[in-house]
Design a protein around this nucleic acid. Structure first.
Length: 710
DNA sequence: TTAGGGTTAG
């Protein structure tokens, strides 16, 4: 037994645990990931396989259950649900428990496993389950549910299904919890259609989705951009018809009516109860039919109480499947992240109007959304509203506020907030430190960021890949590439796996310094570190290669991407086209421009501006002007850069009439000229006195008084 | 005793 477990045991006055010679010395011995052993290694006891289909009676534990709660059980009850148990304590207790005779009840094992789930030690839960069966102990339905949940959280949803299959074979009936875990697992793997199908299937399986299950699916839909579908589902819950694909109110009402007509009032009543159990909302017609039936059969008092029930909200059923603060929070969060802050606020008001009180999570979601969408005053007001409602900010709220201040470059107040949370007895977490470090980097205070980075481990947290990436990004932004590379090497040395974001930051920095070979070397290193490049990586790489005269290399990569299933972005085309235009290879750029549509991409204002620039450089002004008309015709509005580009072209060609014409067009579009426009006009004036007359149109632009020539 | 929501880096 480890000293930590001993301490924990003494704390809760547990009897000393006997030393188990077989106890593994390291956590690695628990890390078996084979599913098969869990199900096949049951030969030690035939009684381990339940024979009855009744889950309440089927699994017979070969050992008698302790009649009263032991100190061990009390300890587990007190510490597991809160997650107040360390991994090493859990390992020790588990090893002790499986050797106890008689063994503790399965609920104690489940509590212990639950504690590990709380601290996200999924693989350990998995190996504990394997050891349980290997010891001849029988996991019960809840143990299996915990296992399904762990597998799903480990992105092993397929194995989750295998466990469900085994569950059924053992005579257990999968529960809403089982299905919810699997729905979540599918959502985590972005298999939202399958999650939706499973949701429908569980209803067919007569397993009612709970509000948690709805919440899980709604979250999956929101995460995959299907907010509309999520909203519809949410509304479906709210209307009381929160369960799909089953007999509905109309079918039930018809049957009740039929039974009432035949004076089979008892059967009608039980059908009515059944529909409520199935969360099928009886309508006023259903009630009316049944009330009529009771009245007809002389049961007026029952009819009256039914009438009373109608008056009560929901009649007391279906309530647990109504939207709650969690389901609202999920959708509000999606709207915030999609920049639809008005929609988010609207939904927040709706939930309050429906009597659903927002909790600290919903407040934090919306406060974050408001700050993130630069609605500072509204964010502040909401924070005050939350506190006035008696809800205190929690750790995440503080992190949101620190992040908001950092984004505004207000590091001083962020630091004060950190001090405040510590004064309040709150332990800042790695999010807090990473956020603050990023804020410090943003304002160029790299030394303080580094200092904070080094102090993280003394503050009870460990810097992870994000901490390193934040600092690496800070160094790269301020062109301190060597420091960034040193940090990168340090993270590898310390076993912290760099992410694609780490590499993207480094590649950007290295290309900025013009070190093309180093960047290429790093790009290849990504493979050795098993980090897959994403579309941002390819954009950085292709842009860097193009800007540093390595277009053939860029095109090689482009072609290899074409041969894979890579999803091209407009930005990738833009960077290549820009590169070729600027090096006078207009035809290649033109080919790329035409290739875009075959990749399902539409040119944007930047694409057109690049091509217009390329054409102007080649003196193909008419064609450039044609492209301007084309983009306007296709609803892609030119911006000031597009006009400047084309005007510069005409200016160089001494075509002042065209320039003036374009200035008029700009004015019509309410586009303000920028410094570049001004310099074009000045150039033009210096060339041709007659152009002075164009000054007449200048007052139509805002903020152009400075342009008036003496 | 088991299942859902919020905060950090390009």
């Amino acid at each position: 037994m480890s000293s930590s477990a001993r301490t924990a045991a003494s704390k809760c006055k547990l009897p000393p645990l006997s030393t188990n010679p077989e106890r593994p010395t390291s956590s690695n011995s628990h890390s078996s990931t084979k599913l098969s052993s869990f199900f096949t290694n049951q030969a030690s006891s035939n009684t381990a396989i339940p024979t009855s289909s009744n889950p309440k009676t089927s699994p017979k534990n070969p050992f008698p259950r302790a009649p009263i709660q032991t100190p061990l059980e009390k300890f587990l009850q007190a510490n597991c649900k809160s997650g107040n148990i360390t991994l090493s304590e859990a390992l020790d207790y588990f090893d002790h428990m499986i050797h106890m005779r008689p063994p503790p009840p399965m609920s104690s094992f489940n509590r212990l496993l639950g504690g590990l789930v709380k601290s996200k030690h999924y693989s350990h839960v998995f190996s504990f389950c394997n050891k349980l069966t290997a010891s001849g102990l029988l996991p019960n339905l809840i143990t299996l549910n915990i296992l399904v949940n762990c597998l799903c959280n480990m992105n092993r949803v397929c194995d989750g299904f295998v466990v469900m299959g085994s569950m059924i074979r053992k005579g257990y009936r999968p529960t809403t919890v089982t299905f919810t875990s699997l729905v979540k697992g599918l959502c985590m793997e972005n298999r939202i259609d399958e999650a939706n199908k499973l949701f429908e299937k569980m209803i067919k399986f007569r397993c009612q989705p709970s509000v948690i299950c709805y919440g899980t699916l709604i979250n999956g839909l929101c995460r995959t951009g299907k907010t509309d579908v999520a909203l519809k589902l949410h509304e479906e819950m709210n209307s009381g018809n929160g369960v799909r694909f089953r007999p509905n109110t109309v079918t039930f009402t018809s049957l009740i009516q039929g039974l009432c007509v035949e004076d089979r009032i008892d059967e009608a009543t039980s059908l009515f109860e059944k529909m409520k159990k199935l969360r099928c909302h009886p309508s006023v017609i259903t009630y009316g039919t049944l009330i009529n039936g009771f009245c007809r059969t002389g049961k007026t008092d029952v009819a009256l109480s039914l009438h009373e029930e109608m008056a009560n909200e929901n009649g007391g059923y279906g309530v647990d499947c109504k939207p709650n603060s969690v389901t609202y929070g999920i959708i509000i969060d999606r709207f915030c992240k999609d920049g639809m802050i008005d929609k988010a606020t609207e939904l927040f008001l709706e939930m309050k109007n429906r009597g659903i009180f927002p909790d600290v999570v919903v407040y934090s979601i919306l406060i974050h959304g408001l700050y993130y969408n630069e609605k500072w005053e509204a964010g502040k007001a909401l924070l005050h509203e939350m506190i006035d409602s008696g809800i205190q900010p929690d750790l995440v709220t503080f992190n949101v506020l620190i992040g908001a201040l950092c984004r505004r470059g207000n590091v001083k107040d962020s630091r004060d907030l950190l001090k405040l949370m510590i004064r309040r007895g709150m332990n800042p977490n790695i999010f807090t430190y990473n956020t603050l470090m990023d804020g410090l980097c943003l304002v160029g205070n790299l030394d303080e960021a580094r200092e904070l980075f080094h102090s993280i481990s003394t503050r009870g947290c460990e810097p992870g890949a994000i901490s390193y990436s934040v600092l690496i990004n800070g160094y790269c932004k301020y062109r301190k590439i060597q420091e960034a590379i040193n940090l990168y090497e340090e993270m590898i040395f310390k076993g912290v796996k760099p992410t694609v974001i780490t590499y993207n930051a480094l590649l950007t920095g290295i290309f900025q310094m013009g070190k093309v070979q180093d960047a290429q070397k790093l790009f290849h290193e990504m493979h050795t570190q098993n980090v897959l490049p994403d579309s941002a990586t390819y954009l950085i790489l292709l842009d860097g290669l193009c800007k540093h005269d390595c277009k053939p290399e860029a095109m090689d990569i482009f072609h290899s991407l074409e041969n894979s299933n890579f999803r091209f972005s407009v930005e990738i085309f833009n960077c290549l086209m820009d590169g070729f235009c600027k090096s006078g290879k207009l035809e290649i750029a033109w080919d790329l421009f035409h290739k875009m549509s075959s990749k399902g991409l539409l040119p944007n204002v930047i694409t057109y501006s690049i091509m217009i620039h390329g054409l102007c450089m080649e003196g193909q002004l008419e064609k450039a002007n044609g492209l301007l008309l084309e983009m306007e015709g296709k609803g892609c509005l030119p911006n000031v850069i597009t006009y400047n580009t084309l005007m510069r072209g005409f200016c160089l060609n001494d075509d002042s009439t065209k320039v003036v014409e374009l200035l008029h067009k700009m004015s019509e579009r309410n586009l303000s000229p920028d410094d570049s426009t001004i310099s074009i006009v000045v150039d033009l004036l210096s060339k041709d006195e007659r152009i002075r007359k164009c000054l007449d149109l200048l007052p139509t632009f805002p903020a152009t008084s400075q342009l008036r020539m003496p």
